[in-house]
């Protein structure tokens, strides 16, 4: 792993502020929840943490804040273990499970307890309640809250110490459309302020709208560590859509002249060409005098890209080498990784 032993990077202000997960392994009995996982989360962007249910996202996030002890490997936050941070809530804000609150307390009492634990001024309680839109129910008992309100309360607790690093585990669950819009804007705002934001989700479509960078895991292993744009452009599902009155002729030409190209019929008589780009198709058509009515690029949705990636992650389970960097199977079988692996 390229990141092993490199320590924290320095941000433009010269301060270290990031999450480093280094060869994290977590076993529960015989079940391996996380298996040699390494990645870094950098400031100034929203990093999506994606994976199917049971992929190890929550386990990893719990391990970051010291709730689960790693079986192997280590995690550093701002360059040191979480447990050694004296007032952790002022450096790391975390929302793991919005339901994990004592229902008998009022929202403001709940936040006051948390503020006291880190010497945070009690005036921050009202501030964060206003930020998340719960100021009018500050004195109401948490037991009466809807799941959406609990998520807002959880976000308020994470923001209490005004931390530079934020972790949110499935924050969108239970929110109404207005709440979802709000939390997306909040994540982006927090990242724009230069904070490090890690948001987990099993919903690709949600991440497409929120995240700048993605860390995808499957079965406890890293599947991809790339920007959203990069991930999409590398997807094997990207295709060129062509419409032509001479579709049959074009189809034959494509199969004959361009190596590795696959042609399949698309909707309303169009052809979908996989494994090449639009310019190659256009040039081929021009060279043979084929008339084109449409030539467009159909980019895979993040959902499709994700399905490809995580389906592959299942295959890794049967291989001896979990990261076949030199695998001849280059298109759908190689982890898409940018910058952190040889």
């Amino acid at each position: 792993m390229a990141m092993a032993g490199t320590g924290a990077v320095r941000t433009r202000s010269g301060w270290r502020q990031m999450i480093e997960v280094d060869r994290l392994t977590k076993r529960y009995g015989s079940v391996v929840a996380v298996d040699g996982l390494s990645f870094q989360v950098l400031p100034g962007r929203v990093t999506g943490f994606l994976g199917p249910n049971g992929a190890g996202k929550s386990t990893t996030m719990r391990a970051v804040v010291g709730l689960d002890l790693p079986t192997m490997g280590e995690i550093r936050v701002n360059g040191r273990p979480y447990a050694s941070i004296r007032r952790p809530l002022c450096e790391v804000g975390v929302l793991l499970d919005a339901r994990a609150v004592h229902g008998g307390r009022s929202a403001s009492s709940h936040l006051l307890c948390i503020a006291r634990s880190n010497g945070i001024s009690p005036s921050r309680v009202n501030t964060v309640l206003e930020m998340v839109g719960l100021a009018t129910v500050a004195r109401r008992r948490i037991r009466t809250f809807s799941l959406g309100m609990l998520q807002r309360l959880g976000v308020a607790a994470a923001l209490l110490g005004n931390p530079g690093v934020l972790l949110f585990d499935e924050p969108v669950n239970g929110l109404d459309p207005e709440g979802i819009r709000w939390i997306r804007a909040l994540m982006k705002q927090l990242a724009a302020e230069g904070r490090t934001v890690l948001v987990s989700s099993h919903l690709m479509s949600e991440m497409a709208l929120t995240a700048d960078h993605l860390i995808v895991i499957g079965r406890g292993r890293l599947v991809a560590d790339a920007s959203v744009t990069d991930l999409l452009s590398r997807s094997s599902r990207n295709r060129v859509r062509v419409r032509s009155p001479q579709a049959g002729q074009l189809s034959t030409l494509l199969a004959r002249d361009l190596a590795g190209v696959r042609v399949q019929p698309g909707p309303d008589g169009a052809l979908e060409v996989l494994g090449t780009d639009a310019s190659a198709v256009g040039e081929l058509a021009a060279a043979h005098g084929v008339v084109l009515h449409e030539l467009s690029i159909q980019q895979a949705s993040l959902e499709e890209a994700f399905m490809d990636l995580t389906r592959d992650s299942v295959d890794y389970r049967t291989e001896l080498d979990p990261l076949p960097a030199a695998s001849p199977n280059t298109s759908p079988g190689t982890p898409t990784t940018v910058g952190s692996r040889p």
């Binding site: 941000t11 010269g14 301060w15 002022c90 010497g119 945070i120 001024s121 110490g161 530079g164």
Partner: peptide
């Protein structure tokens, strides 16, 4: 923006 976590704590 850009300042570090250790700059953010209030107390």
């Amino acid at each position: 923006p850009g300042h570090a976590a250790s700059r953010w704590p209030s107390a």
